[in-house]
């Protein structure tokens, strides 16, 4: 097998009137956790189904280690995936679920017990999966993804339904998988879930990748040095700062976000115009901001945003 990575090139997929994928292209590299974020309906799950050969694309190629998934002999030894933690037969035990999967790849039962221990499911493994909590199902799904000890791991919304302990465990777990040299692709519709885990981000909207970069590069690119200002004289302050060339947004009854001017310049301007203010703080963009910025056009139903005042 060549380099353990996923390479997607120009994927297009139409379901009836809906264009689910519209030129989706990106690469998932080994040794890092790649966050795959975007609003619901942006094409994340479809992309993952295409990678696994479950859905056929109208155009483009999806290669796993240089080969189409459907040509792999024991695919779970190449790619471990968790698409839907609820994809279980409720009256089959967790262990038996892993057992048939293991047998399908020519793996022995003792590998099943190893992964059960690895995800911390030993005590529940011989109970019916129908009685599992969502968090337990997620762990069982992770165990299934690890069965073949694959160099590529792909998880769709793994944080869904996890309690805080589970989320912390999951983050550490994903980092350790990447540290072992595996290519890890983790999707989420919430940036906050992946921001502390991912090294690399692929942001998707309307069926294509709209950003594909390292986390730090993304923040640096979007961060335009905003400043948060708390003042009781909002309109006065906005007028002064806008006049000086800044973009000013009222974000609350007594809070204003200023961009385009550094914090010390703002303090000088406000003091000169005798505008009272109680707090000025430099604001470095978070991934959440980056995400919102990038996906603004891609979100199909968007909440009303604060009014923006520019000169």
């Amino acid at each position: 097998m060549s380099a353990p990575e996923i390479v997607l090139t120009g994927l297009r997929k139409r379901y009836g009137a809906t264009l689910a994928l519209d030129g989706m292209s990106f690469t998932v590299r080994p040794g890092v956790v790649t966050g795959f974020v975007g609003p619901n309906g942006a094409g994340k799950s479809t992309t993952m189904r295409v990678v696994l050969g479950l859905d056929a694309v109208d155009e483009g190629t999806a290669l796993v280690g240089g080969k189409p998934y459907r040509s792999l002999r024991c695919p779970l030894n190449h790619v471990g995936a968790l698409l839907d933690a609820a994809a279980l037969h409720p009256s089959r035990t967790g262990r038996n679920h892993l057992l048939w999967l293991a047998y399908s790849q020519g793996l022995a039962a003792r590998r099943v017990d190893q992964v059960i221990e690895q995800v911390g499911l030993t005590s529940a493994a011989r109970r019916k999966a129908g009685g599992y909590s969502l968090g337990m199902r997620q762990r069982l799904g992770i165990a299934a993804a690890l069965l073949g000890d694959p160099p590529i791991v792909m998880l769709d919304e793994p944080f869904n339904g996890m309690d805080p302990d589970g989320i912390i465990w999951m983050r550490g777990f994903l980092r350790s998988l990447a540290a072992q040299g595996r290519a890890v692709l983790v999707s989420s519709h919430l940036m906050s879930e992946v921001q502390d885990t991912a090294d690399h981000l692929v942001v998707v909207g309307r069926g294509k990748a709209i950003a594909d970069a390292g986390v730090n590069d993304l923040i640096a690119a979007t961060s335009s040095g905003r400043v948060a200002l708390r003042t009781t004289a909002g309109p006065h302050a906005m007028a002064v700062l806008a006049h000086a060339g800044a973009t000013v947004v009222a974000t609350g009854s007594d809070t204003i976000t200023v961009s385009g001017l550094p914090a010390d310049r703002i303090v000088t301007l406000l003091n000169r115009s005798v505008v009272p203010f109680s707090e000025v703080s430099a604001h470095r963009a978070t991934l959440e901001d980056v995400y919102l910025e990038l996906t603004r056009d891609a979100v199909e139903f968007r909440a009303a945003t604060p009014t923006e005042v520019t000169r």
Binding site: C74, A108, R110, R111, D149
Partner: peptide, 19 residues
């Protein structure tokens, strides 16, 4: 990379006949 691709777990039983 080699660490991942070659370190297969114990208990792998690869049969020729996939069916």
């Amino acid at each position: 990379m080699t660490a991942v691709t070659t370190a297969h777990p114990a208990g792998r039983r690869t049969t020729r006949d996939g069916f």
